[in-house]
Nucleic acid binder design. Structure first.
Lengths: 157, 157
DNA sequence: CCCATATCGTTCGTGTACGTACGATGGCCA
DNA sequence: TGGCCATCGTACGTACACGAACGATATGGG
C-alpha cells in the first residue's frame, strides 16, 4: 500500500439525520452526469488525435464541416453552446487559423464562419478517431447498454 | 416578400465523405453527456433553493455534513474534484462563512475542513430540495428508465 | 415611415475543471 | 540518520459555461 492517507476515516454521521433519509450524493443524476462528463472529456483529450483540440472546439468544427458556412449564433445553437461561450471558442479557433469569418452580406449583425483549408484538413483527420473515443468512453457497457444509454441521454437533453 | 437572406440553410455536405459515414456528433456519448450536464446544472440552479450555491459546492457541503471533518484532498477525492479545482471551491465556501478550517494536528501538510454552524443550517435546508432536483432532471423518463440511467452512468464513471 | 421589440455579437464577472510547477512536509529505507 | 520520493495545498495559465449589460442592426406593426 503506497499512500495510506487518512487511515481512520470519520464515520459518516448521517443515516440518523431526519432530513437525509438515504439521500446519497453519489446516486444523484446531476452528480453522476458531472463525473461521467469529466471522464468522457479525459478520454477525448487523449484519444481524438490532437491534445490542443477540446470537445467543444471539435463539435464546432464538425458542424462547420457539415454546413460550410454558419453564423456564430446559429452554430452555437447547433452545438448547444451559449453565445458568450461560443465567442471564446470561435476566437481561439480563429487564432489558430482553423476558422475564418466574413461579414454576412445580407445582415450586418451577423458574422459568417467557415473552416479554413487547414481546419478542414484537421477535422477530417480527427473524425477518424471520433468513433474510437465514443467506444472507449462506453467500454464498460455491453452493446445493448450502450444503445440504451444514448437513448436515455437523448431524452433528458 | 421579406428580405429572405440567410434564411436558406446550407445543406449538410457530408454523407459522401469516406471518413464520416453516419457519424453524427449529436449521437456521440461525450456530446450528450455535455448537454445533459448543462441541463442538470440549470435545473439545480433554480431548484436547490439558493441560487448562489453551485452543484460542486453543494456536493462538498453534503460530504462535509456526513463526515464532520475532512482534509481538502480527501474531500476532493470523495466528490470527484481535482485538488486545484477543490482549492477554489473551498476558498469560496470559506469566504461565505459556510466552511471553516484548521491545521491537522497530526500532519502539517493537511488542512482539516468542516462546516460552520451556518453551513450546517444551509446544507440541511438545501438537502430538502435535493430529491426534487433529481426528479425534475429525470422527468422525461419513466421510473424504470430513471433507475436504468443511474445504473448505466454509475458504470461509466 | 417610425418606433418598439428582437436579434447578433461582444464584454465583464463568477465559477468549474485540470495540467503544471512549486515549496513544505512526511514516510521509508539504504 | 540522511536522502529520496510521495503527498498536501497553493499559484498560474487555459478553457468551458452562463448571466447580465451593451451597442449595432433588423423587423414588424401602427
Amino acid at each position: 500500500m503506497r499512500g495510506n492517507v487518512a487511515k481512520k476515516l470519520q464515520e459518516p454521521k448521517s443515516a440518523s439525520s431526519p432530513t437525509s433519509r438515504s439521500y446519497r450524493i453519489e446516486e444523484q443524476v446531476g452528480y453522476l452526469l458531472r463525473r461521467a462528463h469529466q471522464r468522457a472529456s479525459a478520454i477525448f483529450q487523449v484519444g481524438i488525435g490532437d491534445p490542443n483540440i477540446t470537445p467543444t472546439q471539435y463539435s464546432s468544427m464538425v458542424k462547420l464541416n457539415e454546413y460550410t458556412e454558419l453564423s456564430q449564433n446559429l452554430l452555437g445553437r447547433l452545438v448547444g453552446m451559449d453565445k458568450a461561450t461560443m465567442q471564446g471558442v470561435v476566437r481561439r479557433l480563429k487564432e489558430r487559423g482553423l476558422v475564418d469569418s466574413r461579414p454576412d452580406p445580407g445582415d450586418a449583425r451577423r458574422t459568417l464562419l467557415s473552416l479554413t483549408t487547414e481546419g478542414q484538413r484537421l477535422v477530417n483527420k480527427l473524425l477518424i478517431n471520433g468513433p474510437a473515443v465514443s467506444r472507449e468512453t462506453m467500454k464498460p457497457l455491453t452493446a445493448q447498454e450502450q444503445r440504451h444509454l444514448l437513448e436515455l441521454l437523448s431524452k433528458i437533453v
